[in-house]
């Protein structure tokens, strides 16, 4: 919220609560001139702002912070629903158990591989699709609608149609002795395919928003200077689109890292195809081991936080959520 340019409350404060030149307030630089003059009124406004936010903050804490804290607390306990009498505080034992488990690291590797491969493919295909949708001269509406259909289908339903397509008995992509969904690499490829098919339109949508930012004049000027189509794409369009691309990449990476439904339907995590979410589900819901399950949830939470952090650090000011981005 606070990064979305000049705060309307601040502007209002500048113009009404305090005697301040109206032009300054309108230009949004009241802050610079009237630091001391503003302070009292501004403080009151801040207080009001906090009070106004309070209900939302309380709800957020109740529905987000509390479960996170409770998960952390569970992860420090031996807590298996099948042995209710053996529940006890065990410190970091669960973390040791999970982090020293081959199953966890296999799942982690599989998740990373699926994330990197599918997001990379989606970026390329999404860009192509975005360009097509952006440039389409005839039937633009139709092209956009058609390409968005996969995104509109419920993931589980789409996953089931992929499942039956590759099924040993009913599948129209397989023969009677051919069961790709029971082998690791073919299964992973099918999972990536299902992911890409499903979310490329989403990527394209986000990228299209970026394409709209590229001024036609700039492209025309570049063309006038002798830049060919590829140069115009890499030297003009991509730099201007960078923020949009980063948003798209960040969203999809975080999303892909939490992949669950496609794997659940396609392989149930058999033959080393579990993602971290899948293995967490197996331990928590199937295995009834709240301690280990909560530990895994916390580790996923940390991984996701790291991914977000890396995006923001690596891409600096252009990254979504960084201070300057919104005020450009």
């Amino acid at each position: 919220m606070t990064t979305q340019g000049p705060n309307p409350a601040e502007t209002a404060a500048g113009s009404t609560a305090v005697a301040e030149p109206a032009e300054d307030a309108k230009r949004g630089n009241g802050k610079k001139n009237g630091k001391s003059a503003l302070s009292e009124g501004k403080r009151a406004e801040r207080r009001l702002a906090w009070l106004l936010c309070a209900p939302a903050v309380i709800v957020m804490v109740a529905v987000t912070a509390w479960p996170i804290i409770y998960s952390l607390w569970l992860s420090l306990q031996r807590y298996d629903l099948r042995f209710p009498d053996d529940t006890e505080f065990v410190g970091l034992d669960n973390y040791v158990a999970v982090l020293s488990s081959g199953y966890w690291w296999t799942a982690f590797g599989v998740t990373l591989a699926i994330t990197v491969v599918s997001v990379a493919i989606e970026l390329v295909l999404g860009m192509v699709l975005a360009l097509v949708m952006h440039r389409a001269l005839v039937g633009r509406g139709l092209v956009r609608t058609v390409s968005l259909i996969p995104y509109g289908i419920v993931t589980v339903v789409a996953a089931f149609s992929w499942y039956f397509a590759w099924d040993q008995v009913y599948g129209y992509f397989t023969g009677p002795d051919d069961a790709p969904l029971t082998q690791t690499i073919p299964s992973l490829l099918i999972i990536v395919l299902a992911e890409v098919w499903k979310t490329t339109p989403f990527m394209a949508l986000l990228l299209m928003a970026g394409l709209a930012l590229v001024p036609d004049d700039l492209l025309k000027a570049a063309a006038m200077d002798g830049a060919n189509a590829w140069q115009r794409f890499t030297k003009v369009m991509l730099p201007v689109m960078k923020p949009a691309i980063l948003v798209a990449l960040l969203f999809r990476t975080l999303d892909a890292f939490r992949i669950f439904d496609n794997i659940f339907v396609l392989t149930k995590g058999q033959n080393d195809t579990s993602s971290v979410s899948m293995i967490t589900y197996n331990n928590l819901i199937k295995g009834l081991n709240l301690g280990i399950g909560a530990t895994m949830s916390v580790l996923i939470f940390i991984s996701v936080a790291i991914i977000a952090f890396v995006f923001i650090k690596l891409f600096g000011t252009a990254a979504p959520g960084s201070d300057t981005e919104g005020r450009r």
Binding site: D80, R82, F83, A97, V98, S101, Y103, W104, G269, S274, I279, N282, N283, K286, G287, N289, I292
Partner: peptide
Amino acid sequence: VQSQGVLP
């Protein structure tokens, strides 16, 4: 059996 370790 000791409900230790991690499920695949």
